[in-house]
Amino acid sequence: MSYGPLLFLGILFTLASSWVGLVLLPHRQMGALGQHTDTNTAAIYPAARSGEAQQGAEHYRSLGCVYCHTQQVRPEGYGSDIERGWGRRRTVSRDYIHDKTVMLGTMRTGPDLTNIGERQADAAWHYRHLYNPQITSPGSIMPPHAFLFETQAIGPAGRSTNALVLEGTFAPPAGQQVIPTRRADQLVAYLRSLKSSGDLPEAPVKKEEAQ
């Protein structure tokens, strides 16, 4: 095989095949996927995120949450995603159309977060968990994200309404309080917006479970 041009063309066409097959064709098939409107209830799914939550998605990306948390629910009978309560149905392409960066993830050092907004709706839980995961999930190996919070002196007006409720060893020194920064607020808004359980023709939710 000493014929240069043949080698060159072979190299070109082999990669061109999967470039068309795995990049261009999927782009044609799914690149323009839109929202689905339910004919009975006129509900639109998936709904767009609030601006606050979209900002939070940027922090989720920047902090690299995706390296330990997935955002995909595998189908029933494949893995234990549904049995673990991580979702009521598998996730499908349409669930992700609003994501600026799609962060499906490939590693489950921590649990799946596809529906964390539904599974854990309490904002206070999220704040305390981010501040130090040991408060809410003892034994977790998630790093504390205390840098998303400020520890400051309690002013003359008393404790701030958004100060974290911390007890025992986690409590700040007397006269101090822990306040979430803007970033923490946005990140929590994003986490609480994570819900992929709308009823879709391609991924129906079992009727008895769907509200």
């Binding site: 795995l22 990049v23 999927p26 782009h27 799914m30 690149g31 323009a32 996927l33 392409s93 349409r94 992700y96 159309i97 994501d99 960066t101 799609v102 499906l104």
Partner: peptide, 8 residues
């Protein structure tokens, strides 16, 4: 690109 085409 939009949606899960990114993952592909």
């Amino acid at each position: 690109v939009r949606g899960v085409v990114q993952a592909a």
